[in-house]
Computed example of a mutant assay.
Amino acid sequence: MSGRVPAPGSLALVETLVNTVDLESGTDALDTAEGRARFDVAEGDLAAARELRESLRVVCLAHAGHPPHREVTPLQELLTAAPLLLTVSAADGSATLGPAHQGPLVSRVAAAIAEALVEGTWPRLKACEAPTCLWAYYDRSPAGRGRWCSMSVCGARAKMRRYRAK
């Protein structure tokens, strides 16, 4: 929907997953074989991937100070199925945190969130406040107080509605 720059690092995976559905048109990229392949989601795991997506959206809404759009399984419950593995290099002492199992989408999402927590970027992944949009975006505003995925689309619509209400 928006022309924003993608979220930094592996947080782009989370942003892209949340944005696999266009709520305005009802189009869901996970309905296609290409969309599922992009996230390595088997058709049998589709319901779990969609539940993960909507739980992530609720967290993105919370980051922006908005209430949940619907009842979902709390993200914390979904992430308990995704153990992370800390790997320390004997050569240089560097450490990385990644999924213990490479396959499941939830493991990759958990690792992306962990990386974003370390980098301090996690709270800036938000969801648009427009109820017909709820698109995930990375808030790059200096104060971190962005409200819409796109000021020229959703922001303009909201401002026009407020103007007309006056």
Rank of each mutant, 00 (worst) to 15 (best):
A114Q: 06
G146L: 02
C133D: 11
G155S: 08
R147K: 12
C128F: 08
C154I: 03
W135Y: 13
G98F: 01
L117V: 11
L97H: 04
G155E: 07
C154D: 13
T121C: 06
A81D: 14
C149K: 04
S150G: 10
V106W: 05
G93R: 07
Y163L: 12
E129I: 00
V88T: 12
A82H: 06
L86M: 05
A100Q: 13
E129K: 06
C154S: 10
T132I: 00
D92F: 02
E129P: 07
R124K: 08
P123N: 14
A114E: 09
G93F: 05
P123F: 13
Q76H: 08
R157F: 02
I113C: 04
H101D: 15
A130P: 00
L134P: 00
A158L: 03
D139N: 10
A114D: 06
S152P: 00
R145V: 00
G98S: 13
L85T: 04
A111D: 11
A112N: 08
R145H: 07
L125Y: 06
L78R: 13
A127F: 04
L79S: 11
A100P: 05
A81W: 00
H101Y: 06
L97E: 09
A82F: 01
C154R: 05
C133T: 02
C154K: 06
G144N: 09
S150K: 01
Y163S: 10
E129N: 02
D139A: 12
S107A: 15
V118C: 07
A110L: 03
R145L: 07
T80R: 15
G98V: 01
W135P: 01
A111R: 09
A100E: 14
S150V: 03
P123Q: 15
S141T: 15
T121N: 13
P123L: 14
P131T: 09
A127H: 08
G98K: 04
S89I: 00
A91W: 00
R145N: 11
A116P: 02
A91K: 09
S107E: 14
E77T: 13
R140K: 07
